[in-house]
Computed example of a mutant assay.
Amino acid sequence: MEGNLGMQVKSALWKKDMSQKELAELVGISSAYLSDIIRGRKDGPKAQEHIKHIRKILSI
């Protein structure tokens, strides 16, 4: 999932002309934490909630 999520997020950010920092601000988390989620380093229950929010924002 980590590679898949990372590719999906990067592609969606590019299509929306949005930075990772902007996405992190919309989700309400730090850029570093967002990066950890995207790379699969964080995958607990809280991270899963953030992933749902990220997917909703980016429509993925």
Rank of each mutant, 00 (worst) to 15 (best):
M1Q: 09
M1H: 06
G3S: 06
G3M: 07
G3H: 07
N4L: 11
N4G: 05
N4F: 05
N4A: 09
N4Y: 08
L5P: 09
L5H: 08
L5R: 05
L5K: 10
M7C: 00
M7H: 05
Q8A: 14
Q8E: 11
Q8F: 00
V9M: 03
V9H: 01
K10G: 11
K10W: 10
K10P: 00
K10Q: 10
S11A: 09
S11G: 04
A12D: 03
A12I: 08
W14F: 00
K15S: 06
K15V: 01
D17S: 12
M18I: 08
M18P: 02
M18N: 11
S19Y: 05
Q20D: 04
K21P: 04
K21T: 14
E22Y: 02
E22T: 11
L23A: 01
L23R: 09
A24K: 01
A24I: 03
E25W: 03
L26A: 00
L26K: 15
V27F: 04
V27W: 02
V27I: 14
V27Q: 07
V27K: 02
G28K: 05
G28N: 09
G28S: 04
G28D: 03
I29N: 06
I29S: 05
S30A: 04
S31T: 08
S31Q: 14
A32V: 10
A32F: 02
A32L: 07
A32M: 02
Y33L: 12
Y33N: 14
L34Q: 08
L34E: 02
S35F: 02
D36K: 13
D36W: 11
D36E: 15
I37P: 07
I37V: 15
R39I: 08
G40A: 00
G40F: 03
G40H: 03
R41A: 06
R41Y: 12
R41L: 11
K42M: 14
D43E: 14
G44D: 15
G44C: 14
P45M: 13
K46I: 15
A47S: 15
Q48Y: 02
Q48E: 15
Q48D: 13
Q48P: 08
E49K: 15
E49F: 05
E49I: 09
H50S: 13
H50Q: 13
K52T: 02
K52C: 05
H53G: 00
H53M: 12
H53Y: 09
I54H: 04
I54S: 04
I54Q: 01
I54F: 06
K56R: 15
K56A: 12
I57Q: 02
I57L: 15
L58A: 02
L58C: 10
L58G: 07
S59D: 14
S59A: 11
I60V: 10
I60E: 06
I60W: 05
I60S: 05
